[in-house]
Amino acid sequence: MEENQLLEKFQEKVDAEIKVEPKDWMPEKYRKTLIRQISQHAHSEVVGMLPEANWLTRAPSLRRKMILLAKIQDEAGHGLYLYSAAETLGVDRQELVEELLSGKAKYSSIFNYPTLTWADIGAVGWLVDGAAIMNQVMLTRTSYGPYSRAMVRICKEESFHQRQGFEIVATLAKGTPEQKEMAQDALNRWWWPSLMMFGPRDDNSPNTAQSMKWKIKRKTNDELREEFIDRTVQQAEAIGLTVPDKDLKWNEERGHYDHGEINWDEFYNVIQGNGPCNQERMKARRDAYDNGRWVREAAKAYAAKRAAKAA
């Protein structure tokens, strides 16, 4: 079959909401886009463990410590599910990890921000996971089968993440004056970076149209961002915190909040490596990889010896 015929059949299938499976014919660009997007997503889960793990030894109660550890463990699991999904497209996890470590592959910039107080752990769960969930729920309907299935699994498990984060912030908000201040300060610092998680504005997002056509994405950056703001502003009000945007206003006509302009200079700066923690995060991942090499080698060498003995 000719390439353009194949392409046409592919688009028909996607339009008919039939999932694309690993061995099906797919346009090279579809495959490449997915590898990039899924691996970026996987890297984000794994790098995202670091700012939260930063507070594991300092969690203020045994219950909080257990919840946090279980949550970070979930993130590792989600990274793993996603690497799995990417591997069905014919790449090896190792190649993907090496791309991350060489700086070629990106991960969500939000994780280049530091977790400075315990309230930040709440803010990460509430806002960062909250923003991620908007995206992930949409992706359960993505056109690539393995990606969509990984997302269904992830969404099932994520539901507790945002709740535990909100619970932390809510507890602080009704606590002592210092605790409330801590909560407000965290919201002030995490609000704008969370909005940036949805990516550039639609009029400045060149890949969106193609991704929507192939149903990799089902909603635009701005649509998702808007949904997130509408939900989160209410939640902040419910616990007596103030969203740090003086231009934030309910627009009756649109049925959505209008919000102030995002600092896109900051956004691009962090992507380019100038966020507060870019170097620390990459160093941590590189060290884990390098220091773990002899461990992985030993396990493999032992398995080979055993297999040889059994033969």
Partner: peptide
Amino acid sequence: HVGSLHAPDAQTAIENARDVYTRR
């Protein structure tokens, strides 16, 4: 089928699968 993982051998793969895919 639930997904995949990496392991040095089958026994370890089973144990890792327990931790990765049956946490709940």
